[in-house]
Design a protein around this nucleic acid. Structure first.
Lengths: 360, 360
DNA sequence: AGTTCAGACTTAACTAGTTCAGAACGTTAT
DNA sequence: ATAACGTTCTGAACTAGTTAAGTCTGAACT
């Protein structure tokens, strides 16, 4: 029984499978030629190529093993995507989804795969991922996974996190965006304003966040947005220390609903809410509806993100638009195209819809 | 200048990086020992391990190259996920997102990555992906990517698509679920019913689908759901050929809104809509609201999926619940755990909320 | 003193391809 | 006739680790 024949029977796959070398041997050609038959058809005659392909089929050779090819080429053909949150939370946010879509679309066109890197307990997964580069949608100061990615000596793009000299960066001006939202409410006459904030740390705490906790927030984005709110409110003479900032847990919509509920049940309830994400804001809309509080007549709500849900909410949500989809595209393009490190700051824009109105 | 020193400077990374062999040479130990220092600390003395790790740091060795390690181990540490649609559409559906979440969670716990396989123009990406198995959320008959995946001789699980003898399978009883939805409307007294359907083919067509097109639909799931509707309506004496079935394009919500708009603008408009997904149904709710048609008083709407959006819609959507999250988990578990091929059929359940009522 | 054994480390085989520099050979231009 | 050239194919180096089996050493036990 020949080697090839024994393998073909593969009555339980005990030995390795058929390899490119087997095909080459069977046809008395070199490995290079077989490899070319698959990868560079112009490098051999049509006749020989057909013979090789048919012999391969005969032997049950499934084509060059991608793992070995990756090794030879020293190119994985995939980029890794790292989130702050475990997948469970990350994908529940439509804004994040939109980001991935943009990222995925560029990857798709470039023919590279997208690897969702598991969160795990350590940085291990970043160190072990078979990828040609990383996009880190990581926002927390001192996230060791950013260092781990850069340590791999692969191209790295950090999105929304703090810019670093040794990695590309894509982000928005969170502070200015937030300031525009706050200014809008102030212009409408609101003074009793409360804030719904995404988690400030990675520690799972929620509830009222005092100014110390705000200052020591590890989340770069949230710190910036709170600063934007503060800038405008303070400029209007409102004492920021008196502004309730409620930190919400994961599963934003439900968390926003609960947090808004607490604020709205207070005797001297706010006339407007600033949320650091649309999901929180949509939760707040629900909380208001449950209490018979009319939005925007009795309560104005502003979101942040302009996720697809914002336009579909009832009432449609006034929010700070940021180009999530373009953020994904920009990150992927920066990663896939060689060249100098760049720092892309995309524009934000206040989108006024039906959830805000003049204070009566 | 020694080899190692030259590499350390790496003034433009012209040569390869530092390898495990370099570290071994520098310390006069074997490659095996250096490998063990990283992968099996119990195989060498603590002292030596520390020396190795510190020398590695000194030389700027970033640890064993994952690509080479993958090649040696012949294990990628990742599973591939294949969708029907390009990522652009796939991720816009919250139900799909929930599925990925379940899948991702099991992978995360098992420490394996999740690779989103690009759609591309051919099956190439399936043939070239560096993975240990595939989950195919593929629904279209004759999808060659399923064959390509099975051809790789890796474990494969097909979700929602037609069951195959040579691959695992996870699905629901679409026909029964759809029948329950139709029965519900019939029990409420509705007789003038129209259907909003997800795409029947991969051909991008939309609009009224006649019974021929319904029968020849390549989408297994949609064919089954339509059959479920038909079963119940026909049993009640309604002529199925007279029931308008409108096929909607991608970006379901907007497509559903448009399709529902067409139906509702007709002189003898339906009193109830059956949608094959919640996104379509939510679009229909919007179309009704835009026309001042009260739901559920003047129009009943039933969805399918019970995606998170269903409960948050106004009014909350009556829909057929299916366990997307568990579907994802089941698929991952089946893929990661060796053993016999199994066929998992998960339960569906009609969830009655506020979008349906008795015909007045 | 000899046997046994565990711990620490080495040897060498193995993973399955890709790719570049040439070789062989027929064809075309000078 | 000869040089130049293009096509087709080969040889051999190269990718960077993992791992099973084996060697060596010293200590404990008989």
């Amino acid at each position: 029984m020949t080697d090839a024949a024994r393998r073909r029977t593969g009555g339980g796959r005990p030995g390795r499978g058929v390899t490119l070398a087997d095909v080459a041997r069977a046809l008395q050609v070199s490995k290079a030629t077989v490899s070319n038959a698959y990868n560079r058809p112009d490098q051999l005659s049509v006749r020989l190529r057909e013979r090789i392909l048919s012999e391969a089929a005969q032997l049950g050779y499934p084509g060059p093993d991608p793992i070995a090819a990756t090794f030879s080429r020293r190119r994985a053909g995939a980029v890794g995507l790292v989130f702050d949150d475990p997948l469970t939370f990350a994908l529940t946010d439509p804004a994040e989804t939109l980001f991935i879509t943009g990222l995925g679309e560029v990857c798709e066109q470039a023919g590279v795969g997208l690897v969702l890197i598991p969160r795990g307990s350590s940085d291990d997964f970043v160190g072990r991922a078979v990828v040609d580069g990383f996009v880190l949608h990581c926002d927390l100061d001192g996230d060791t996974r950013i260092d781990a990615a850069i340590g791999r000596e692969l191209p790295v793009v950090v999105v929304d996190g703090p810019a670093r000299p040794d990695a590309g960066h894509v982000g928005i001006d969170d502070r200015a965006g937030a300031a525009a939202a706050a200014r809008h409410l102030i212009d409408l006459g609101h003074r009793r304003i409360a804030v719904l904030a995404l988690p400030l740390q990675g520690d799972g705490r929620s509830g009222l966040a005092d100014t110390v906790r705000q200052r020591t927030a590890r989340s770069h984005v949230i710190r910036e947005r709170l600063a934007g709110f503060r800038d405008e409110l303070t400029a209007t003479g409102i004492d920021w220390a008196e502004v309730p900032v409620v930190e919400c847990g994961p599963y934003s919509r439900e968390a926003g609903r609960r947090a808004a509920g607490l604020l709205l049940d207070q005797p001297n309830r706010p006339t407007a809410l600033l949320a650091t994400s649309d999901e929180l804001a949509v939760g707040a809309l629900r909380a208001a509806a449950e209490r018979g509080i009319a939005v925007p007549k009795q309560l104005s709500v502003v979101g942040f993100d302009d996720a697809p849900t914002a336009a579909w909410a009832t009432p449609a949500l006034t929010t700070v638009h940021q180009p999530h989809y373009d953020k994904g595209r920009a990150a992927a393009e920066q990663l896939l195209n060689p060249g100098e490190r760049v720092d892309t700051i995309l524009p934000t824009e206040l989108v006024i819809r039906g959830s805000t109105s003049i204070l009566i």
